[in-house]
């Protein structure tokens, strides 16, 4: 089973109550599954099994159906965000300048793939499309910090700053 990157679920009772309120407010509107899932992601930051199960039990829809929607749309995360969020631009300019190789190196260094989080919770990895800095291509971000003209051999040094 693909659990959420091996990171234990740390939801609080308060978060659960928040989610239940959203579900109760929306349950009678048709097509309520998507807005409830969006709200759940706002509350928890991602949609682990435990959260999908709450939605499934409350709405009486199979949890596989919730999962099917969660994996269909790119907006939903199955893994939590790390303390540091790493993002690589795969927009056209960055890509032709080799951001694909930068991404590969980050995956190698962190041992995770796109959309995943390291098991110590330190780093999560995403890809994005254009951050508006094409002149600096290829671009990667760590939290709010932008790194331009990155080469694969620089990746380790950049990540080490956040360890």
């Amino acid at each position: 089973m693909k659990n959420s990157g091996g990171i234990p679920f740390k939801g609080t009772e308060e978060q659960k109550q928040q989610l239940l309120k959203v579900i109760n407010d929306l349950r009678d509107t048709s097509g309520c599954l998507m807005p409830i899932m969006q709200a759940a992601q706002d509350i928890y930051g991602y949609l682990p099994y435990e959260v999908q199960k709450i939605i499934s039990d409350e709405l009486g829809v199979p949890v596989e159906k919730v999962y099917g929607v969660a994996t269909f749309y790119a907006q939903f995360n199955l893994n939590p965000k790390g303390e540091n969020t790493v993002s690589v631009c795969l927009g056209t300019a960055c890509y032709v300048k080799g951001s694909g190789l930068v991404l590969e190196e980050i995956e190698k260094q962190l041992g995770i793939g796109d959309g995943e989080c390291t098991s110590d919770g330190k780093f999560s990895l995403d890809t994005c499309r254009c951050v508006g800095a094409c002149g600096l291509a290829p671009v990667m971000l760590v939290n709010e910090d932008v790194y331009g003209k990155v080469t694969p051999d620089q990746v380790k040094g950049i990540l080490d700053k956040y360890k």
């Binding site: 089973m1 829809v61 199979p62 949890v63």
Partner: peptide, 30 residues
């Protein structure tokens, strides 16, 4: 899902990656 009211399988992911499976890729036995 409809005949049996169970729904342990469904379509996961999208486009070329779509496949029939269970939630979080549980084995069917689980």
């Amino acid at each position: 899902e409809k005949t049996q009211g169970i729904g342990v399988i469904g379509a996961n992911e999208r486009g070329f990656k779509t496949y029939i499976g269970s939630v979080f890729d549980f084995d069917l036995a689980d």
